[in-house]
Amino acid sequence: MKNELEKLDVYLKELGEIHPDAVGKVGQEVDDAVWVVGRDRVLDVLIWLKDKGFDLLLDIAGVDGLHLGRMERFEVVYILYSIKENIRLRVKVFLPESDLKLPTATDLWQSANWAEREVFDMFGVTFEGHPNLKRILCHHEFEGHALRKDYPMMGGQWCSSTRDLREDLDE
């Protein structure tokens, strides 16, 4: 674990030479490194990390920090893993409620395709350039975003029609 953090420090220095000030804040939560990156720099950082060997995008998690009182309301967390170096890293982006947009990472990792669709479905974050940004877990007639904190816990909706998947074929 200590070894991992040391390696990440080296990476951070290397990244700082190419993209200075890209990583705003470096945190450490229960032994795991967290890099907080600005929204306009996130794609640069992700491309750099992909080249550096982070070949497995484990997950993209959305967070609605309505009651957390952090910098901005929404957070998108990329959980990356390097199989070769055995390092896990979280890259976090804060997004204001008024402008929920991020560049897509589908060109870097294919797993970003469904992961981004899920974040869009649950929180309404738009990923620009995504090949097929549609709801994935909720029904296509569903209104609102279920995992936002202001969505009611018992807010069920009646959705019945079947989606025509022909438009998804040529994704």
């Binding site: 997950d59 609605d64 957390l68 395709n113 469904w114 992961a115």
Partner: peptide, 24 residues
């Protein structure tokens, strides 16, 4: 992926299911 705000209920739990990405 769990976020706790110190209370007795989790603030957010995100599951990383292996199947989701296999299905992708």
């Amino acid at each position: 992926y769990i976020i706790s705000n110190g209370s007795s209920t989790p603030y957010r739990i995100k599951v990383r299911p292996p199947c989701f990405y296999t299905m992708n």
